[in-house]
Amino acid sequence: MTSCHIAEEHIQKVAIFGGTHGNELTGVFLVKHWLENGAEIQRTGLEVKPFITNPRAVKKCTRYIDCDLNRIFDLENLGKKMSEDLPYEVRRAQEINHLFGPKDSEDSYDIIFDLHNTTSNMGCTLILEDSRNNFLIQMFHYIKTSLAPLPCYVYLIEHPSLKYATTRSIAKYPVGIEVGPQPQGVLRADILDQMRKMIKHALDFIHHFNEGKEFPPCAIEVYKIIEKVDYPRDENGEIAAIIHPNLQDQDWKPLHPGDPMFLTLDGKTIPLGGDCTVYPVFVNEAAYYEKKEAFAKTTKLTLNAKSIRCCLH
């Protein structure tokens, strides 16, 4: 018999989150649709729960009410004593943790798909938090293969000092899905179709896995975050240069030392320094102006996964 890495157990509980950011409308629209008619997301033997994560922000069509829901799922915020004085999103995070967690427990949901849009030209993107997770690498390989020839990129946010504390991190297997470009507060049919297909293929993978299909060893190309880059700023902290036209919409493309990065209003080009080629992502993302992030630098690498098969009882 072929030796293989056996994944822990079959997958039982899956959640699909929309509206973690209330103005990213593809996930909101799909989740609302699936709450009314969820036939397309159901798979035999699998509990799939669509869920609106930040209903107040969705109602106002804004990213958040008090603070970013997708950055506060750490033990400090989840452990705060519940009171009306807490920011709305912290209270909501505790409610979500109660419903789908608790985080880092045996009772937490197996998989959470968190649906997002970006204003950046990132196409279909899967966000991975753990480079050693054979199950998710296999799932992402399946999704990428199923979507081809449509490109699907994998963004690895594993980093020693950049801690995200994402909404989906309460699950055993957290999956971020990011599709763009799409303006905030807008629905685009092409973007919706791409996100819908990503979810379909992900659920198909889980179904095949649960039925005992063995997935042979595989490898995927990923883009691992190195650092986030702020806009150049003046002495008052105001933005002093904008994304250069040569960099705009060039997510995932190589940016070499000396290539144009920013452009000042008086026409001066600010190039990339250093001696390493990087791959920019979230270029000129609207939501990241407040976070002082013009783009993120990534490096390209390959992740390998062992063969996996479900432990059938």
Rank of each mutant, 00 (worst) to 15 (best):
T299H: 11
H256P: 01
K49G: 01
D249K: 02
C67I: 12
H244N: 04
H313C: 11
E106G: 13
D193R: 09
A202M: 05
A296S: 11
I226P: 03
A296V: 13
F113D: 02
L265K: 12
F113K: 02
P149S: 02
N54P: 07
N37M: 07
G19Q: 02
I65Q: 08
H33G: 13
P183Q: 06
M261D: 00
V278W: 04
Q94P: 06
I308F: 02
E238A: 11
P245G: 02
F113A: 05
L25M: 15
Y279F: 09
F51I: 10
R56L: 13
K306E: 14
P50Q: 05
D266N: 08
C311L: 13
I157Y: 12
G180S: 01
T299I: 15
G18W: 03
E106V: 13
L35S: 10
A240Y: 08
A202L: 02
Y142L: 03
G45P: 01
N23E: 04
I96R: 06
V229D: 05
L301Y: 08
Y155V: 15
I137V: 07
D130L: 02
L156T: 05
L126G: 03
M82T: 13
K197L: 13
V28A: 15
S3W: 07
D74V: 10
P149E: 05
T62W: 10
G180K: 06
F205A: 06
C311E: 15
S161D: 15
M122R: 01
K197W: 09
T302W: 11
S131D: 09
K306W: 06
V28P: 15
H116M: 09
G45Q: 06
I112R: 04
P232L: 01
E293G: 10
R92V: 11
Y164T: 15
T298L: 00
D230E: 14
P232H: 00
R233D: 00
E76S: 12
D110E: 07
L75S: 13
T166M: 09
A241T: 00
I225N: 14
K32H: 09
I177Y: 06
H33P: 02
L162Y: 15
I112W: 02
G237K: 04
H116T: 01
L192R: 02
E214A: 09
R168D: 08
D114L: 00
G185R: 02
I65F: 08
Q94Y: 10
I170F: 09
I225K: 15
E40M: 02
R43Y: 02
A241R: 03
E106W: 10
T62D: 12
D190A: 04
E227H: 03
S83K: 13
V48W: 03
D107A: 12
D251F: 04
L263E: 08
D68S: 06
D259R: 01
C124G: 05
D259I: 02
G212A: 03
T299D: 07
I72K: 11
A287P: 10
G273A: 12
A202V: 04
P183G: 09
L187M: 13
I220G: 05
R92S: 07
H244M: 06
D230C: 11
G27M: 04
T277Q: 06
D74Y: 10
N134T: 12
C4N: 15
Y288R: 14
I65P: 05
K32A: 06
Q12T: 09
I170R: 08
P280T: 00
R92N: 07
V58H: 06
K300D: 04
E76I: 11
F295M: 07
S169A: 10
N121T: 05
N210K: 10
K228C: 08
L255H: 02
T277S: 08
N77H: 14
A7H: 14
L156P: 05
R233T: 12
F262R: 05
T264Q: 08
G180M: 05
F51S: 06
G185Y: 05
I11L: 08
P260K: 00
K253H: 09
P271R: 12
D204K: 04
P149H: 02
L301H: 10
G273I: 09
R168H: 09
I225F: 15
Y223N: 06
A93V: 10
P271I: 07
K163L: 08
F135P: 04
A219K: 11
C124H: 04
R43N: 03
E47S: 11
E106C: 12
N133L: 01
G237D: 09
N70K: 08
L203H: 05
A286C: 11
V58T: 12
P271Y: 11
N304S: 13
F113I: 10
D193P: 06
N284V: 02
A240F: 08
Q248R: 05
P160L: 07
K172Y: 00
Q42S: 11
P174G: 12
E95M: 11
D234V: 00
P55H: 10
V31C: 15
Y153Q: 11
I72Q: 14
A287G: 13
A241W: 05
Y223M: 01
C67K: 11
L78R: 10
V14K: 05
N77S: 13
G79S: 14
L99N: 10
G267P: 01
D104E: 12
E178R: 15
K32F: 03
K81N: 13
H159C: 10
T166G: 13
M139V: 01
L301G: 06
P254M: 02
E178D: 09
D190Q: 07
Q94I: 13
H207K: 15
F262D: 04
T264E: 01
T118A: 09
Y173Q: 08
L187G: 00
K292Y: 07
P50Y: 04
Q138Y: 03
T26W: 00
E24W: 04
R56D: 13
Y155Q: 14
D85N: 13
R91N: 12
H207Q: 15
K81D: 13
E47H: 12
G18L: 00
T277L: 07
F140V: 07
P87F: 09
R71L: 10
K49F: 09
G123I: 05
Y142D: 00
Y288T: 15
C276I: 14
I220L: 14
R71K: 14
D259N: 07
H244Y: 04
F17K: 00
D107V: 10
H33N: 15
D68L: 00
I41T: 01
V179D: 03
N117Q: 03
Y279Q: 00
Y64I: 06
A171Q: 04
F135G: 01
N246F: 09
I157G: 15
L115K: 02
V179F: 04
H201W: 01
A57C: 06
V14C: 10
D114S: 08
P217S: 09
F295A: 00
Q184R: 10
D234A: 08
L192C: 12
F209N: 06
C67L: 12
K80E: 13
S131W: 06
I226Y: 08
E158Q: 07
